[in-house]
Nucleic acid binder design. Structure first.
Lengths: 232, 232
DNA sequence: GTCTATATGCGGATAGAC
DNA sequence: GTCTATCCGCATATAGAC
């Protein structure tokens, strides 16, 4: 097999695979299902990817590259530490909950299916991404705006943000930017106070309970979804 | 098959299955592996459980029952709203990170493998548990101690707590109680201020970075673990 | 490039001996 | 209760026609 890395078909396969992997998990999803969703046969999938695992690795590497790029860009566009941290939270959440939701959720929850070699590569990318956060959080801690245990702060903040992937659903009248701002105010109130007046006001949007009542769903503490993909 | 629900052997199987499900995922784990870990054969497992899925359901129901009981107990032992919320966070984290870590992680991350009927039962239990939180958070919101969007607060707080299951490892010199207190102070600072002096001081324990440096691990933003269970 | 057909192995579950 | 042996279906991956 050649490696037409940017073939259009290859991208279609990746996108569809990511959606199915998120819905049903890597193991439960079969190559036949991915192929059927694109109205091709499983043999064709193996023309583009040597193995099912290569699909998973490609999805994860795309995902982590996208979130890193988005956050680095948001970071570069701001000056102050507080503004930078807000931008990072907003960009992280946008990357996670936006058009890359499938890939990012696969990255977050399917890493056990990686081979050791692939795991090593993804870990290296992850560590580079964490460094972005640690640098800004250290600056905030030096000013007394967050707990001095910056690793704990990073885990707490990003844990809460990542968890949003479990319950946030697009189309709610509560937009991602408004959500990011509001979570930021909850998670780093002292940093939030440092923002200048204009930036501090929370973007408008109906309250979350109203938006969710509209959609009829109840956001979970545990990851269980009322309308998940079932086994059969 | 009879249903010796509280047979000792049955408990052993559940415990071992939970460990393997957490490490490798429900799908990757085979009944033969579970049996081999207990030095029995797969046929014996099917004497205690009708199917592999029944194993999963039992693990999850045990898990959610345990965390609910722990939090309800912590709640009942306290008077003030602030004290109740701190106790809830501590009990939730203790249930998650303590001896039930395997079961709770399976509950959090393997729900896609549930059949619709089983999902319905687990969802009902989950909703009852969420009610415990919503009641106390509403009381805190009424006093202006947390954002008025109590659903968002619940998702944020419990997301951060649940995420700790991804990175916290027992044996760190940073105990669970100290961790709970510190995360509580980060996540609900206004509530934390309401605690009386004695309760407000954070329990001692070396800082998290030190404890982690000791263990040589770096806590992840994404769930990927340096020392996870690999495919083979 | 996409297809059909198939090799190959594995996993859940069952039957029945002990 | 635990075992051995086995059925059955399915999934990854390959070979080779078109």
């Amino acid at each position: 097999m050649t490696d037409p890395s940017d073939s259009l078909r290859r991208q279609e396969i990746l996108k569809r695979a990511a959606r199915l992997f998120r819905r049903s998990g890597f193991e439960r999803t079969t190559v036949r299902q991915i192929a059927a969703a694109l109205e091709i046969t499983s043999g064709s999938v193996f023309y583009y990817f040597e193995s099912k695992e290569e699909l998973l690795v490609a999805i994860m590497e795309d995902g982590i590259r996208d979130v890193h790029a988005a956050v680095a860009e948001g970071l570069a566009a701001k000056r102050g530490v507080a503004e930078k941290l807000l931008a990072m939270a907003r960009c992280h959440l946008t990357a996670l909950l936006g058009s890359n939701l499938d890939s990012l959720m696969v990255l977050l929850y399917e890493w056990r299916s990686l081979s050791p070699a692939a795991m090593k590569r993804v870990l290296a990318s992850r560590n580079r991404y964490e460094d972005l956060w640690d640098r800004e959080l250290a600056a905030a801690a030096a000013r007394g705006w967050v707990d001095s245990d910056t690793v704990l702060v990073r885990q707490t903040v990003l844990g809460a943000l990542n968890w949003a992937g479990q319950w946030y659903r697009a189309g709610s009248r509560f937009g991602i930017d408004a959500l990011a701002h509001r979570m930021f105010a909850i998670l780093m109130p002292r940093v939030h106070e440092q923002l200048d007046q204009g930036a501090r006001s929370v973007p408008t949007g109906s309250s979350l309970p109203a938006a969710l009542a509209q959609s009829g769903a109840s956001p979970p503490i545990f990851g269980i979804q009322p309308t998940g993909a079932f086994s059969k």
